[in-house]
Design a protein around this nucleic acid. Structure first.
Length: 478
RNA sequence: GCUCCGGUAGUGUAGCUCGGCCAAUCAUUUCGGCCUUUCGAGCCGAGGACUCGGGUUCGAAUCCCGACCGGAGCACCA
């Protein structure tokens, strides 16, 4: 019988009464991007659904090519907290290197790991021929001794590696004898110069997943082959591989290709203001722009875990965020490209507009103005003499002249266009958008919303980022 | 070159394991309408898809084969 699933992630296959243990394992070489966010949310969501455990593990075993950033460890913790995905346990691989050495020795003793002295290109040739490298046949004693020498610093970088024996004749070249440890004589941001022999991801993560009791691995399909490679290791050690699930490549249409390393380079070169620059696809940037964590969660859960490669538009996230933010965002008038309008009010009319703070509520805000108001350049461009428009919450006017712009108040009429405006004593407002800076003016009360997400009517949602004496800076949400 | 994975509307996604209840779900986008004060908000409505070709079957989105298209791995990166 077919049943339509409720909104959410598909169920994970699991044994009866099994305690689910999930993990998210980033390399902290920069701030979390939208890509990493998927990993945080999907894994924590599964852990939550099955009442299991969620582990955050830093796979920081590469001090050179993708060198960890010391601050990023904390950033990940903050981001997880913010996303309501606080880990039950945090593990740092670089602090557990001795543990990996122990297993390396065990594998050497079992005769399933060997120290290989082939230069990379030479080994590639051998591998492509489905041949074996001469070191593969070395005795256990020789390997143990060579491994010892590796650890003792006898060899230089690239002179020797420790390989795991798989099958040099495997149909798939990606599986043949892979590197488990290599020599890197470079300090590590976290543990300094304590180690010169570093495990590769396949080795480190294989050992950790077992030790941490991970039951299910859910990650990107770029690591699909990793499972097959690591399976050899699990067989050698008599372990059971976790259940795996892989999602396809995700690309945000608005951002194109980005990698953490690339981002880091550009930030260091000053191309961006920092990891929270509003143009960036980082969690820090989205937070500063006023996105709500529950919207981001829902967005990634809706996308799910299919293996198809996808190109998603930020519009989907915007839609989700709009639902979260609409109810709590107070409304204000912000006028970009302001054009001055002289206002001739009828006798007895008030210069104080009573405006709704939120269309669904009853709370008012007062907007006081003199006999000049400001309207947006865009609205101005469409005006003609004799046309009637309503200045929202203030009055209906008839345009008397365009240059200079002047209008007189008339009796309220139905079905006239409604535009918003800014009062005489407006404050300066700068809006930082992904596309650039937009300047304008707005009602003074905006300055009282520091840190809040508000809606600039007919413009969009923004988060008030900073307030000074006569200027407000807002980050554009969407 | 070798190996692996995938292909449902503009974009995501459900359905595929166990073929019929699928003239295909939900969301978003787009379009139209509504709202006696938001034409970047809200409400209502409409449109829009099973990559192609064979096969199996009474019956195929679902099973099989092939083609085409997309992506990944073959790093002393993660």
């Amino acid at each position: 019988m077919k049943e339509v699933r409720e909104f959410g992630l598909p169920d994970l296959p699991r044994a009866e009464g099994e305690k689910v243990v999930m993990r998210f394992a980033p390399n902290p070489n920069g701030a979390a991007t939208l890509g990493s966010t998927r990993g945080i949310i999907v894994n924590s969501e599964y852990a939550r659904r099955y009442n299991g455990k969620f582990i955050l593990r830093f796979d920081d075993t590469d001090p050179v090519v993708k060198r960890p950033l010391l601050e990023a460890y904390d950033w990940y913790l903050e981001d997880c907290d913010w996303l309501d995905a606080r880990p039950d346990e945090v593990v740092v691989a670089s602090e557990r290197i001795d543990l990996y050495y122990k297993y390396a020795e065990e594998l050497i003793e079992k005769g399933v790991a060997y120290v290989c002295f082939c230069p990379a290109e030479v080994f590639k040739n051998i591998k492509d021929r489905k041949d074996s490298c001469p070191d593969r046949a070395a005795s256990i004693e020789t390997n143990a001794e060579n491994w010892r020498k590796m650890l003792d610093g006898v060899y230089e970088e690239k002179e020797a590696v420790l390989r795991i024996k798989t099958d040099m004749a495997a149909k798939d070249p990606a599986l043949r004898d892979w590197v488990a440890f290599r020599i890197l004589k470079k300090d590590h941001p976290r543990v300094g110069n304590r180690y010169e022999v570093w495990p590769n991801l396949d080795f480190e993560s294989a050992i950790e997943d077992h030790l941490l009791g991970i039951t299910h691995i859910v990650r990107g399909k770029d690591l699909m082959k990793s499972e097959t490679r690591q399976q050899f290791l699990y067989d050698h050690l008599g372990w059971q591989y976790p259940v795996t699930k892989h999602w396809g490549k995700i690309k945000m249409q608005e951002f194109g290709k980005f990698s953490t390393s690339e981002l880091r380079k550009r930030i260091e070169q000053g191309e961006y203001e920092g990891w929270d620059d509003p143009r960036l696809p980082t969690l820090k940037a989205l937070r500063r722009r006023g996105f709500q964590p529950e919207a981001i969660r829902k967005f990634f859960i809706a996308i799910g875990v299919t293996q198809t490669d996808i190109a998603v538009s930020m519009k989907n996230l915007y839609a989700e965020n709009r639902k979260a933010v609409d109810a709590l965002a107070a409304r204000f008038f912000f006028v970009p490209e302001p054009v001055e309008m002289e206002l001739n009010l009828m006798n007895g009319d008030s210069f104080v507009a009573k405006a709704l703070k939120h269309p669904s509520g009853a709370d008012y805000r007062e907007i006081r103005t003199g006999n000049t108001v400001y309207i947006t350049g865009g609205d101005y461009a469409k005006l003609k003499v004799g046309e009637k428009i309503r200045l929202k919450y203030l009055c209906t006017v008839e345009i008397e002249s365009i240059n200079p712009l002047a209008a007189k108040a008339i009796d309220t009429e139905l079905k006239v266009p409604v535009i918003h405006w800014a009062p005489t004593d407006s404050i300066k407002v700068k809006v930082k958008k992904p596309e650039g800076l937009e300047e304008g003016i707005g009602e003074p009360l905006i300055a009282s919303e520091l840190g809040n997400v508000v809606q600039f009517e007919r413009y969009g949602f923004v988060r008030i980022d900073s307030v000074t004496d006569n200027e407000v800076v807002a980050y554009f949400t969407h």
